[in-house]
Simulated assay, not measured.
Amino acid sequence: MISFTSLLRQRPALLACAAALAASAPASVAWAQGAEPVMSAIDETMMAAFEADRADILAMAGDYKVRFDMQESTAWVEGYEPLDRKISGGHESVRIIEDTGTKIVLQHLLVVETPDGENFIVKHWRQDWEYQPEAMLVYSDTGEWSNEAISEEDRKGKWSQTVYQVDDSPRYAGIGEWKEEAGVRRWASNWTWRPQARRDAIRETPYDRYVGINRHSQMPGGWIHFQDNTKMGMVDGELKPIVQEYVLNTYTKFDDYDTAAADDYWKSTADYWEVVRAEWDKLLSNKGKIAVTEYGPTGTVISGELLEMGTKIHKGEMETAAAIIRAKELIGSDTLRLAAAKPIEEKASN
């Protein structure tokens, strides 16, 4: 595991993190004007927690057999009948595509065997982890996302997790602290808004968004992702809870499938997807709001074409440069900046 001190030597950008950690050090710590933080003075407990957090996040990378277990449970409105339990699964490879120390990006890739015996790669969801973030992406309304400031007190010692859809457009984010309780170490988010998942968006439902909590935890031989979702919909002109849902995604270490297919796909398309991510980031860089047209079967109205171009690049049927030009056109045409650039003011601590 990369040590905190080693990271600081290798990445100057981490000095800001060190300064934040040092804020909790004893008052007797001496700082030389213009000098780097004195590492030995930083609270060792926070250093150890930071390294343990990183280890848990990085341990999610690997090759897995995945089980998706979804169950609507409690109806919150009279007359609604919860859906039957649904269980599915597959093979998923999770790769670390960025690690700056205080930011870790994990890309999920589904490996699907077709009836003719070939492997088809589905670029799946992406999760970005950031330590003590100054702002966090929030789902503010149907198809709308904005950056919300996080006060220094509310972000201290915490990690945000931002989840992106298959085309790297935003989905939801939350912030929380890794803690050990009853012998289990887990990360739990705050309550956070998110759009419907594909399983609901492809059919008629009385709800159109969720508010939920995410939990991540290591387990022997893998890790779990648990969601506690309240599905919300309009009732008599008001947004109200319709039904509760529990989702348990279990990632069990397993490599008896064509894991090389996932790596080959990513090697051939990484440059393309890097530009796609950058285009989305550019739209959010002014810390205003953006709107993305949602589309049930694929997430957004442009995700189908963006994913198809990735497949064509991988198969040698399209040049990366041409796909990048088209991707920029698609992202630009499907987004609308709703607010002028404004400096974000930190929210007051609760």
Rank of each mutant, 00 (worst) to 15 (best):
D63T: 10
D63C: 11
D63I: 01
D63V: 01
Y64V: 07
Y64N: 03
Y64W: 12
K65H: 14
K65L: 05
K65W: 04
K65F: 01
V66C: 02
V66P: 00
F68H: 15
D69H: 11
D69S: 11
M70T: 08
Q71V: 03
E72C: 04
E72H: 06
S73F: 00
S73V: 14
T74G: 00
A75H: 01
A75D: 00
W76L: 14
W76P: 00
W76Q: 13
W76F: 13
V77T: 13
V77M: 12
V77N: 02
V77S: 04
G79K: 14
G79F: 04
Y80C: 05
Y80G: 05
E81A: 15
P82D: 10
R85W: 09
K86Y: 06
K86H: 14
K86M: 07
I87P: 03
I87Q: 14
I87C: 05
I87A: 07
S88K: 13
S88Y: 08
G89N: 06
G89I: 08
G89E: 05
G89Y: 03
G89S: 09
G90Q: 07
G90M: 09
G90H: 09
H91D: 04
H91C: 13
E92C: 14
E92I: 14
V94F: 01
V94C: 08
I96V: 15
I96F: 02
I96G: 00
I96T: 10
E98M: 11
E98H: 13
E98R: 13
E98S: 12
D99R: 05
T100Y: 01
T100I: 08
G101I: 07
G101E: 07
G101H: 01
I104D: 01
I104M: 03
I104Q: 01
I104A: 01
V105M: 02
V105S: 06
V105Y: 01
Q107T: 07
H108F: 10
H108R: 09
H108A: 06
L109Q: 05
L110M: 15
L110T: 07
L110D: 00
T114V: 06
T114P: 02
T114E: 14
P115K: 12
D116C: 03
D116E: 15
D116Y: 08
G117A: 08
E118M: 11
E118S: 14
N119I: 06
N119Q: 14
N119L: 01
F120T: 08
F120H: 13
F120N: 13
I121A: 05
V122H: 03
V122S: 10
K123D: 04
H124G: 10
H124A: 14
W125M: 09
W125V: 08
R126L: 09
R126N: 09
Q127H: 07
Q127W: 01
Q127T: 09
D128Q: 10
W129F: 15
E130R: 13
E130A: 07
E130Y: 08
Y131P: 01
Y131D: 08
Y131S: 08
Y131E: 10
Q132G: 01
Q132W: 06
Q132T: 09
E134F: 08
E134V: 12
E134A: 12
A135V: 11
A135H: 14
A135T: 14
M136K: 11
M136E: 12
